[in-house]
Each structure stands twice: as structure tokens, then as C-alpha cells.
Design a protein around this nucleic acid. Structure first.
Lengths: 226, 226
DNA sequence: ATTACTAAAAAACGAGTAA
DNA sequence: TTTACTCGTTTTTTAGTAA
């Protein structure tokens, strides 16, 4: 079963009151709640149970379930996502701490082939370096992972006479609600999912008076609207 | 595609910012957001479009979508359901206006075979009549429809020498936060989905001083907890 | 009454590809 | 580049039924 679909079944169980206590739910009854056959209802409960999302017990031959803490956490996350999507659709707000990397980002951003595309896609020539931000909140690290999977806008890789440079992906961003910029993901095999690299036409450290350890906030735009 | 699953895709589109404006979403990009193939992403968008949940346009060969009002309404409903389920799991609160029916309910509730089962299941002998409540809020009528589909606790039908009496379904209820009772659904082919019938050990009209047109509130319990 | 196995049917999926 | 068709494969579902 697709992982996301489990959320839908968990919602129904929550509506039935399976939080904090076991509720008595014959699979024949659940089949009507879920809108599937009795057999599927049975399988669904067993799958949720295997996945650690519900506790299950059969009492007098009748299924009883209770959503586990793990299951509730999933539901809370879904609720949070839905609320955030309603409040600020298309935008993810990040915050993290500035730190100094190994100058790797700067090395790439200086490459002509990349710079040209940045200008074409983003409308600015980036300052020749990246601002490294270390995320600390668990949910933001999770969002960073998702963004990486989504990829965003592709910046094509290239090769010079020495080596190959892979594709890079960017999302537009707004730093401290004032300065335009973008976040950049390289398609490296090794990366730290707690880290986000920001590019911008400005030298952000000076412009914002930032030093290592300072908190920085920025918004990332998931799509180009029309 | 299962109807409920569309909600999950709509959530992703909302997260991307497809509210109030079109967003540019190549199906290759969506395939990563949705976690499916490009072909499936394409099919999903077309299905959502056919279902009137998103507006779709292909500009310069690239898909652009915007969630329709109908789609947003679905998402709002999901959000509301989730919030309600968290706030009062297992309970639905109703309110409606008392009215006088045709005494049909009373006729059934007086039948011995039903009364015995009511006592066994609910723990009380109902007053020989039902209190008819007319729902007025759209979302409560919708909830009533859902409850009817779920059926609840079955009370077996029977037959006497004249005719057959069908199965009946009940849910426990609490009237005006004080009096126990239950709501009853007969498996009739004709019924008014705006109406709920309440049974209770008490003659509710006298006990609560109700007359036609008075507002009554009650909570319905979706499942028997353990 | 239940739950849940098996086998067959139905639905969903994605690779290949045309436009 | 796109989108989205066909079609073979995989996955999911349910009817029948045993326990």
C-alpha cells in the first residue's frame, strides 16, 4: 500500500475515536467507513498494525484498534502541512545558523557555465560564493529533504577539459523578507541534509552583518507562478 | 482513481501554491512531487481536471494548474474534519429543530422485538416514541448522510404474521449534554437526510420542555469504546 | 458473529514512444 | 524540451470461503 494512503485511513480511525483508547471496529463496519470491502478493511488494519501506526487486538473475535503515538505523529504532521499550505501556499519558511563551509560552493558558483544559467533563470548574477545555513529544527530538515527530492528548476551541468560538472537545482528565495536570492542543490552523492546553501546577487554576510552562528531566516518559493 | 486519493494530490498542489493563481508544473516535476512516474503525474492532473478540481492549461507545451473553488472546498472540508477529529475524536455534535412527524417512529419503537434489542444493546428501554429533529446546517446534513452509510450498531429486523420489519441501526447519543439516548436509522428506501430520530428512556419533549421549532443539541458517539 | 486466506478480476502503473 | 498515448506488467481489490 502506498504510504500516503495510510494517512487517509488513519484519519477515519481518528474520527471514530481511536485515540488514547481502543475502539471496537468489526471489519464489516470498517468496510463501510473506508468504502472498501470487508477483506480490504481487514488487510488495511493489519498493514497499519505492521507499520506500527495502530495497536490491534482481537477481543471475542472482534477487531479493536487504537492509534499509536507514531500514528498520531503522522496525523499531526499532515494537519500541520495542510494548515501551512493554506496559510502560505507555495512558500516554505526556513531558519538556521550561518556557518563557514569549505569554499566548495564558491568554487562552483564561479564557473561561467553555471553563472550564465543562473542569470537566465533567476535574473541575477550571483555573488561568487554561497552562504551556508545549518538547519536545526527537525521539521525544517525534513522539508529540506523534500525540496531536494523535488529538485526545482534545473541548471544543466557541463564538462570542461578536466572534469564533469553535474546538474544543479535551484529554488527562488527571499532572504530576511527583503533580499532576493535562491537556494541551490547540487546532485552530489554525499551531502548533509541539515545544510542549505544560499546564493544571491549580494554578499549577504556584509549586507546583513552576519557572522558564524547568527540566525538567518528565509522563504523558499516552490514554483514559479504565472 | 479512488476519490479520497485525489485529496492527497490536491494537498501537494496547494503546497506548491496552486491557489488563486496558475502555477507552472511540468509533469516531470510533478512526478517527483507526487512520487510517481511522469505518465501517472500526467494522468493524475487530467483526472483532477475532469473532476473539476483543478483548472488546467498547457502554455508553451508546459502544464499549468490552479485549484478550483470546488477543489479548495474539498481541501477545506478535509482540514475541518481533521481538526474536529483531533478536538473531539469519536463524537459528532449535531443541532437541529424539533418537529412532529407522522408517528411512524413511535410505531416501530413500540414493537417488542426491537425494544428487547434496544435494551440489550443500549441498556435502556426507550420511551415509546421518537423525537424528530430537522437539521439545517449543510455540513450537519452531510454528516448525517455519512452516519447513515456507516450504519453503526445493527438491530436485527424480524417478521410477524403480517409483515417484515427491516434492520435498524443505532448510535449512542447524549442529549443536551445530560440525557442518554441514541439516534436511530431505519433501512427504509425513502428517507429525508435532513432528519434525525432520537430515542431515549425519557420523554424528551416533557423532560426538556421542548415544543416544535425549538433548537436541540446532541452528541453522537461513533463507536463503543472499550 | 467474526477474521483473513486464496485465486481471479480489476485497477493502477510505467516503459516506450509519437507528436 | 514538453504531454500523453498504447500496452505489457505489477499491484490492488474483492468474491468465495475456511476457520
Amino acid at each position: 500500500m502506498k504510504e500516503r494512503i495510510k494517512d487517509l485511513y488513519l484519519i477515519e480511525l481518528l474520527r471514530l475515536g481511536a485515540r488514547g483508547k481502543f475502539i471496537r471496529v468489526p471489519t464489516t463496519f470498517l468496510s463501510r467507513v473506508f468504502g472498501v470491502s470487508q477483506q480490504t478493511a481487514s488487510r488495511v488494519i493489519n498493514l497499519l498494525h505492521k507499520g506500527g501506526l495502530v495497536d490491534k487486538d482481537i477481543i471475542n473475535g472482534v477487531t479493536c484498534v487504537k492509534i499509536t503515538e507514531k500514528g498520531l505523529e503522522r496525523l499531526r504532521k499532515l494537519k500541520r502541512e495542510l494548515e501551512e499550505a493554506f496559510n502560505s501556499p507555495g512558500v516554505i519558511e526556513f531558519e538556521g545558523k550561518v556557518f563557514t563551509g569549505f569554499g566548495e560552493g564558491a568554487y562552483y558558483v564561479k564557473k561561467r557555465a553555471y553563472r550564465k544559467q543562473f542569470f537566465k533563470i533567476l535574473g541575477f548574477e550571483p555573488y561568487p560564493g554561497t552562504l551556508n545555513v545549518k538547519l536545526e529544527k527537525k521539521e525544517l530538515i525534513e522539508k529540506n529533504r523534500e525540496l531536494r527530492q523535488m529538485r526545482g528548476i534545473k541548471v544543466l551541468g557541463f564538462e570542461d577539459r578536466f572534469r564533469t560538472y553535474g546538474d544543479v537545482y535551484v529554488y527562488r528565495a527571499l532572504i530576511e523578507d527583503t533580499l532576493e536570492g535562491a537556494i541551490v542543490y547540487a546532485e552530489r552523492t554525499h551531502y548533509d541534509e541539515r545544510v542549505i546553501e544560499i546564493i544571491s546577487p549580494y554578499y549577504l554576510r556584509r549586507r546583513l552583518g552576519l557572522k558564524d552562528g547568527d540566525l538567518i531566516r528565509f522563504k523558499v518559493f516552490l514554483s514559479q507562478s504565472l
